[in-house]
Computed example of a mutant assay.
Amino acid sequence: MAKVKYYYDSENLAYRKIITKTRKKIGVVFLFLVASALFGFLSVVFLLNTPYFETPKNRIQARELENLKIRYAILNKKIDQIENVIDQIEDRDNNLYRVYFNASPIALEERKSGYKGANRYKELEGFDNSKLVMYTTKRIDVLQKELAIQSKSLDEILKMAKAKDKLLAAIPAIQPVKNENLKSMVSGFGYRTDPFTKARKMHEGMDFTAKTGTPIFATGDGVVERADNTASGFGNHIVIRHGFGYETLYAHLSKYKCRAGQRIQRGDIIGYVGSTGRSEGPHLHYEVHKNGKVVNPLNFYYGNISAVEYVAIAQLADQENQSFD
């Protein structure tokens, strides 16, 4: 039963009953209902965003998320196994296959570089497990790059294997002047004293002294790229491109027995010893280049000399004396 309220009428000196209007009652009830509804809505929103209250949908999503984490963990273990296998293949590729065919090894930085670009994984940012997803995605990308490089390398090895006979014939494997025609092996590969300036500088080949007119032999199959005297200091000289990255140079000749564009074979006479250009006396200056870099010719004399002769030449070549050019 509702309480009856009164107020004191000072004019009539009496208490009178307070009569509430119906419209005001309805307004109060309406405000109460609205406030209650708003409070209830805010309470539900708050509860739904706290870890203490889970809906069935939230529980399903949580299970799916944990399942996803487990799958990513399994995937990363499989990636570890694949990386181990690829590392073994790459090691054999660099240290066995490519060494056998005299091919330059592929640098580790190139194999493991992955894909460049700072924004490549931007679309994966901003999620609950972005770090895990990005980490795994990057590893897969690196594996894809490694496999592409390794596949290309094996294609190169296969080509070289099919062309093995041509490769072996192209390698500059003999001495350009026969031992019986040599006076001496004056200067080897490395830092030597310049005969003109007396300064110590890099000597990028080997000098063989012999009589003017002594035959010079091509050290491997190839094509004569040039036979002229236009290069400074070399005088009459010949450059042979052998293929497979090999190139040889024969300088200070007295005359030629070949021409540019001519295909020659190992052992063919291509010219004769002389002293043209920047030279101190009759000799042959001989260089070997591999993939554009000068290398020690001594590493290739295995086609026509004995072990004893090789040791003797190696000892002479190691002496830091004066070159002939």
Rank of each mutant, 00 (worst) to 15 (best):
S187L: 09
V85G: 02
R226T: 12
G235N: 10
T197I: 02
V295P: 03
Y15L: 07
K178I: 00
G277D: 07
I149V: 14
S232Q: 12
D9K: 04
K211N: 14
H289F: 12
A312S: 14
A73I: 04
F324W: 13
V29H: 06
F300S: 01
K77F: 08
E309D: 13
K201L: 05
P195S: 06
T214S: 07
I240K: 11
P297L: 03
T136R: 15
V45S: 05
I26E: 09
C258K: 09
D194V: 05
F300D: 00
D221H: 00
R139K: 15
F208D: 01
I171F: 01
S187K: 08
A170T: 01
N12R: 13
K17N: 00
N181D: 15
K21G: 06
M1E: 10
L65K: 11
A2T: 04
E180V: 11
I157P: 03
E109S: 15
A2D: 11
H242S: 02
H283A: 08
L65A: 13
I216Q: 03
K183T: 11
R241K: 14
E11V: 11
G261E: 04
K183Y: 10
I89S: 12
G190E: 12
I240A: 10
K78H: 12
V273W: 04
D141G: 11
M206F: 02
Y97R: 12
V288L: 05
A199L: 13
E125C: 04
I305D: 07
S306V: 02
E125F: 09
G243I: 06
Y97D: 13
E204V: 01
I19Q: 11
A317L: 07
K152Y: 12
G292E: 09
F244Y: 15
D80V: 02
N12Q: 12
P195K: 06
E64I: 05
Q61T: 03
D207M: 07
E64A: 10
K3P: 02
A227M: 05
T212S: 12
N129L: 13
N102H: 14
Y272C: 04
N129F: 14
R241G: 10
V99M: 13
D221W: 00
K159I: 06
T248P: 06
S323V: 10
F189N: 03
K69A: 04
I313T: 06
A73M: 06
